[in-house]
Design a protein around this nucleic acid. Structure first.
Lengths: 205, 205
DNA sequence: AGTTTATTTTGAACGTTGTTTTTTATTTTG
DNA sequence: CAAAATAAAAAACAACGTTCAAAATAAACT
């Protein structure tokens, strides 16, 4: 077993988070136990608990990284849209939605972690986690507000929720193969959803 | 402990399924263990395993009931729509979607079971379970096909997936309070989604 | 009817799990 | 250099789903 001088507390933290990330590259988070994890990093279960408080809380840390990466990916996709295009805004919404979808498709175990991770009954999701999710919504809100500059911010916020939750649903059911269709792929469904929704939405008040 | 003559095999089956249902009235399925369940019904864990094969498989049985009930609720809502209305079809789609949403809202632990239940790695979802989900999609498909009688069945199937998955996403994120908005409720978001989507969709080929 | 055979049901055991508590080892301090 | 503080490990705990052998009951047969 590793001795005290091998790693500082911070080094050990990173060692653990690295092992978790490595695991998510190949398998869902449910398939790793704290005992297996402790073996991977060469420490003992109680050392992990000593640092993170509980096993779930160390996953929550990874969760935060995933949401950060997700935000980054969506933001980048948004900026890459050609602003000379005829309907910039629709393409921007589409870009964000597809970025979300393809992130989930490429890193399914990372993406699933965010929605499968259940904290112990009682302790709520920490503030910094909620804020990360809100940051994602805001990406869409900014675009929608540009489509309808005079619309109430609350209405814009609602619409961003409608779209985001819809894209989320398509992404999830596609990933878990619960659509039972050999027809269109998830990205095509998302495209259909957004083009039709926006076509009607942008006309009406 | 209960003796052999107390219940027939079938009675015990129903006794167990009843206890599971009772539990879902007040708490999520993850909070019940096979040991607690065995105490509830007055039998021993291995008796439950003997009947259902595994603990997960007895939940799968409940899962089937939930999907049946969900289908029934959606079908009923569909039939209740006034066929004299100006846009029957839109109201029918809306009726199905909202029936889905309000079922989830009223019986959250039943609804969540269907999507949270993870079978052991390896053994796939049984055929009769997939078919139950497909039956739900078909409800929507029938309505959509009436809107566009000349459209390819595959395209109709795709669109029903788009809509259903979207409604599912809104329902899920609303139920889990992950929309972080004190704006519109889930049913309003669903209404917005469907009206705008259909308005555009029914016009175009 | 009484004995054997078959079938449920049980109870104990196994290998896990996350966490708590105690013990041991190492570092820092006086 | 010894004493206090700290960090890691080891052991113990309670719970989990599942397996397996033993006990209790019902059915079958002479």
């Amino acid at each position: 077993m590793a001795r005290r001088s091998d790693h500082t507390r911070e080094e050990l933290r990173q060692l653990i988070l690295g092992a978790l990330t490595e695991h998510l590259n190949v398998a869902p988070y449910q398939t790793l136990s704290i005992r297996q994890l402790s073996q991977k990093v060469g420490y003992v279960p109680s050392s992990i608990l000593n640092i993170f408080g509980s096993y779930q809380l160390c996953w929550l840390e990874v969760c935060a990284s995933v949401l950060d990466e997700l935000h980054q990916v969506c933001e980048l996709a948004l900026e890459r849209v050609n602003t000379e295009s005829a309907d910039v805004y629709q393409e921007q919404v589409l870009a964000v939605a597809l970025a979300y979808y393809f992130y989930a498709k490429e890193k399914p175990y990372f993406w699933k972690l965010v929605f499968d991770l259940r904290l112990a009954e009682g302790d709520a999701m920490p503030e910094w986690q909620s804020q990360r999710i809100e940051k994602l919504f805001i990406l869409l809100q900014n675009v929608l507000q540009q489509i309808k500059p005079d619309e109430q911010p609350q209405a814009i916020a609602d619409t961003s929720r409608t779209l985001w939750a819809s894209v989320h649903g398509i992404t999830q059911l596609t990933l878990e193969d619960k659509l039972f269709s050999d027809g269109a792929a998830g990205d095509q469904l998302i495209q259909q959803l957004i083009t039709h929704f926006l076509l009607s939405w942008q006309k009406l008040s």
